[in-house]
Design a protein around this nucleic acid. Structure first.
Length: 113
DNA sequence: TCAATGACCTGCC
DNA sequence: GGGCAGGCCATTG
């Protein structure tokens, strides 16, 4: 909430907000986009602090498309509901066609054709 | 300041 | 091919 808070967390939020509608990404992809591929855990940790912010954390899943953070959402299947609402097929807490709905900031934003 | 946590990822058995 | 354990880095107590 202060200038000091503006760090990895805010950067993660910014990238998450850039996720298009009906698309999802992984923690590692965001971390890699931030230049800290090894800080993938920090991305998830940042999401933990994203509560109360306009950050579509439901669009962020692990590298296998598993809704690991669903447990942290308000409802039990709220995260899945939001994803399905955007057209993302989710089953057993797992995103179907993950590679199809997957949105890699490194590829989409930079777009190094 | 030190130590522990964490919505992960990669590597090894 | 599947499962288990360790490591990384930043934030919080």
């Amino acid at each position: 909430m202060k200038a000091e808070t503006l760090s990895f967390f805010e950067r993660v939020y910014d990238v998450v907000r850039l996720i298009p509608y009906g698309r999802v990404t992984s923690y590692g992809a965001i971390a890699n986009y931030l230049g800290a591929k090894r800080s993938s855990r920090m991305v998830g940790y940042a999401m933990n602090s994203s509560h109360g912010k306009d950050v579509p954390a439901h669009r962020v899943v692990n590298r296998i498309g598993l809704l690991t953070g669903k447990h942290h959402f308000q409802g039990t299947n709220l995260m899945q509901q939001l994803l399905e609402n955007e057209g993302v097929v989710v089953e057993n807490n797992q995103v179907q066609e993950f590679k199809t709905v997957f949105w890699d900031p490194n590829t989409e934003l930079y777009d190094e054709h």
